[in-house]
Design a protein around this nucleic acid. Sequence first.
DNA 1: CTTGACACTGGAAAGGTTTCCAGTTATACT
DNA 2: AGTATAACTGGAAACCTTTCCAGTGTCAAG
Lengths: 335, 335
Amino acid sequence: MPKPTIIDLARRAGVGVGTASRALNDAPDVSPATRERVLAAAAALDYHPSAVARRLQGRRSDVVAYVPEASEQPAGDMQFKDFMTMLARSCAHQSLDLLIHPLRTGADQGSELTRLIRERRADGLILADTRVADARVYYLAEHKLPFVAFGRTSGIDNYAYVDLDSQAGTYASTTHLIERGHQRIAFLGLPLAYTYGQHRLDGYIKALHAHSLPIDPALIHTDLATETQTREVVRQLLLMPAPPSAIAAASDLLAIYAMRTSEDFGFQPGRDIAFVGFDDLLLAAHTRPALTTVRQPFDLICDLLISTLIGVVEADPEVLRQHLVQPSLIVRQSS
Amino acid sequence: MPKPTIIDLARRAGVGVGTASRALNDAPDVSPATRERVLAAAAALDYHPSAVARRLQGRRSDVVAYVPEASEQPAGDMQFKDFMTMLARSCAHQSLDLLIHPLRTGADQGSELTRLIRERRADGLILADTRVADARVYYLAEHKLPFVAFGRTSGIDNYAYVDLDSQAGTYASTTHLIERGHQRIAFLGLPLAYTYGQHRLDGYIKALHAHSLPIDPALIHTDLATETQTREVVRQLLLMPAPPSAIAAASDLLAIYAMRTSEDFGFQPGRDIAFVGFDDLLLAAHTRPALTTVRQPFDLICDLLISTLIGVVEADPEVLRQHLVQPSLIVRQSS
DNA sequence: CTTGACACTGGAAAGGTTTCCAGTTATACT
DNA sequence: AGTATAACTGGAAACCTTTCCAGTGTCAAG
């Protein structure tokens, strides 16, 4: 019993294949009685239309490829699964399948990307973890391949992206600390090679500026990756003659490391020193004290990524190609 | 300039389509000169064969779908990205594409899974996060859909799986503690609804048994999810009249929470109390003291998942369908 | 009774590849 | 020289859908 085709189905229902197809896709030009009969036959035969054949006939493959860097992210990416899940959900809403195709950093990324599109294994690409200078973005834009980047890249502007306004995020968290009366606020930053690493630093600086506070380079540490590294940096901060009274971190993980380190020094986080993070990890709500942080609306971001990509693929001039999404500050006990 | 087809290519190279196809797939029956000519023409036209058409003609879609539960994993799944990346790499080795299709917990999972296969959107499925009683496994096995589960499920045996021998993992870590002279060893466990949660507990108990140590229910806490929950449990342990001298945790995260809590009580982890974890998170090597833990060889597991799945899809009787992979103990300073 | 419009239907064509089969030419062997 | 074999080649068929077009039948209006 080979899998039934639409021909078997049509025969069984006593109609032509064209009619069968129309009935299944509830096209307008088919009588209710006929549709009924086709649907019944489909159920009886346990018929499922071949997505492959359908894709061949249409011009689309109805697949989106998600192309993360085959990460060396220091602490594991805790939000990756949530993000993937939401992205998949957004795809499902548009009846798209989600392909995942990590790019090895060394390999010939260009031809890899080209083949994905040109072989029609995917209609469009979603990039993530974009860097300040991101070779993939330059390549895709130059070769006019359909893609949307999650995150901006500098030195190029005519491409589609969705990005969190990270700068607004740290601006908000830093301002929050300032409004709580803090004057000396340290900043723990991520690698500046990533665009969001840069933006999160920018927001902190902008907030200090806006409130006429001095920028003290001694209070700013970026490119933090490991826990030991972070702890060492925080140690130095706490041992300063005039230690900071608050610490703004560019990620929840950094903030948590910092809180722990301050405890080692006998400080009580949230009381003696204020902390804010960034990301709103599931962890963040469960630390003690619960961490004030900045949340990115992944669901909205994913929807935008997919709808923008569809616009790009269809070359729809109506679709806005560049989106900046606002984060929200979640105030908890640590600040 | 519509995308060139193999017909354009053949015309350009001055050969028939059959010959062109054979030349591209380096089939045996084509002369070196002809192949040369076809390849040159392909380069000139920037020709890429349509994966969709290829899939239609062959019987395969050459796609594997990875089907995680749309998790409520308490702490975010830190290893998810690494696992995905390796799985994708294993797929790439076999020229397969990896589709990701999270299953909403509520929805009609059955028809979702059936459609994935019957519509040929994927040739086979990889399941993950299997539970002790996993409805998806039962369903897939009953409907004879091609799949491999990462993790075992009870109450059924004729299905393909790859699993880490978690029991051996906690057996090893617990034994390691015993050999270090510990007699009172507490256990922090994961939800028992997950098979590995159960197995990790089993290994701990088995190790105590093997060394004729008593099983003290007061030292065993399972179904731990959040940090606060874990800290509370550890607090209770440390306040016991005869507190444990070592703690075996079923995950690195639980171990780290426990270490931190013990520090709050003035203990020095690794000296006053020993700790072992499970998972070998990137974090684990960077805590202080560095965490002794159990590592799963994800690369091997992924290769096995994919090769087993291929065997299942091709109904190859030669392929071993059930694999138990041994973890390895990584000894660091915490024990 | 004829004509037009209308509602529905069947079947062919297209989408782009691989595979199979029959055919052509060249080579080798008797 | 004649035949058998080998080495290669071209093109048709198959994979399974959707879409388009021409056709059939019904009904209303003229």
